[in-house]
Amino acid sequence: MSDGRDEAEADGPKSEPDLIALLGSRLCHDLVNPIGAVGNGLELLEMSPGDGKAEMSLIRESLDAAMARIKFFRLAFGPGTAALVTAREMRTTLDEMYGQTRTRVIWRDEAERSRAEMRLACLALTCVEVATPWGAEVEVVRNEAAWVIHVDAKRLRIDEPLWQTLGSAKLPADLKGSEVQFGILARLTRQLRRPVSVSADETHLSLIV
């Protein structure tokens, strides 16, 4: 004879999304644009009768952005370990990743922190990206207990049910590949018993994790 909890656990996996599959979709989607730009730059270089400096600059910027995003993904979606990541490394990665976008990320933290701790901040930033398709200024601070992320923008896209996922015990079954970070962050913070706080309006968002 099973109790209600056993039945709920048995039904849970059927209704929750496959985060691994969604993650693969997310990684492929986000790498298409910078790598595609590299291809465009090469095409221009092949057709250009000049010295190709402008085209080479486009290729270099796109490659830097693609490599920075891969480094960022390794922190956000890779295993959390005790290995340390410096503030300088984080700033360089974020500057290169967002350099060609309308978003600016200001990393205020000066400490070296473990990959496990940086993972939380990076996952939170990928959540913020969903709300800032038109660009924003994002400030990342670390207080004694949590990461505090402030977002200011002329316009934000806030999907309330999606953000509520971060504090929910159950993930929505219709979670998209572009939203997989919400599911991963929600599960990780529950495992670590880290409370999550979100407040937002049309132009401001604050995320504490």
Rank of each mutant, 00 (worst) to 15 (best):
G4D: 14
D6T: 12
E7G: 05
A8G: 00
D11G: 04
P13S: 06
P13I: 12
P13Y: 11
E16M: 08
L19S: 09
A21K: 11
L22R: 04
G24V: 05
R26V: 01
L27Q: 08
L27H: 02
H29S: 13
D30C: 10
N33M: 13
N33H: 15
P34N: 06
G41P: 07
G41L: 04
L42P: 01
E43A: 15
E43R: 15
L44R: 14
L45E: 01
L45C: 00
L45Y: 00
E46I: 10
E46K: 06
P49C: 10
P49G: 13
P49V: 12
G50V: 02
G52K: 04
K53V: 15
S57V: 11
S57I: 09
I59H: 07
E61F: 06
S62N: 10
D64H: 13
A65S: 14
F73K: 03
R74K: 13
A76C: 02
F77V: 03
G78F: 02
P79R: 07
T81S: 11
A83E: 14
A83R: 06
T86N: 05
A87K: 04
M90R: 06
T92F: 10
T93F: 02
L94K: 09
D95C: 01
D95F: 01
E96G: 03
Y98C: 05
T101K: 12
T103V: 04
V105C: 04
I106Q: 12
I106V: 15
R108Y: 02
E110S: 14
A111E: 15
E112T: 09
E112C: 08
E112W: 07
R115A: 04
A116F: 09
A116W: 08
E117L: 15
L120H: 09
L120D: 10
A121E: 10
L123P: 01
T126K: 13
E129D: 15
V130F: 08
V130R: 14
V130T: 13
T132H: 06
P133T: 03
P133N: 03
G135R: 01
V138E: 10
V138M: 10
V140P: 05
N143T: 14
N143R: 11
A146H: 15
A146L: 12
W147P: 12
W147V: 10
V151Q: 04
V151L: 03
L156T: 06
E160I: 06
P161L: 02
L162M: 07
W163D: 05
Q164H: 09
Q164P: 01
Q164F: 00
T165W: 04
T165I: 07
G167S: 04
G167E: 02
A169L: 05
K170S: 11
P172I: 06
P172W: 08
D174K: 08
D174M: 03
L175G: 09
K176N: 02
K176I: 00
K176E: 10
K176M: 08
G177H: 05
S178K: 03
S178I: 06
S178R: 06
S178E: 07
L185I: 04
R190K: 14
Q191T: 11
R193S: 12
R194V: 15
R194L: 15
S197P: 00
V198I: 14
S199H: 12
A200N: 09
T203W: 02
T203N: 11
L205C: 13
I208T: 15
I208L: 07
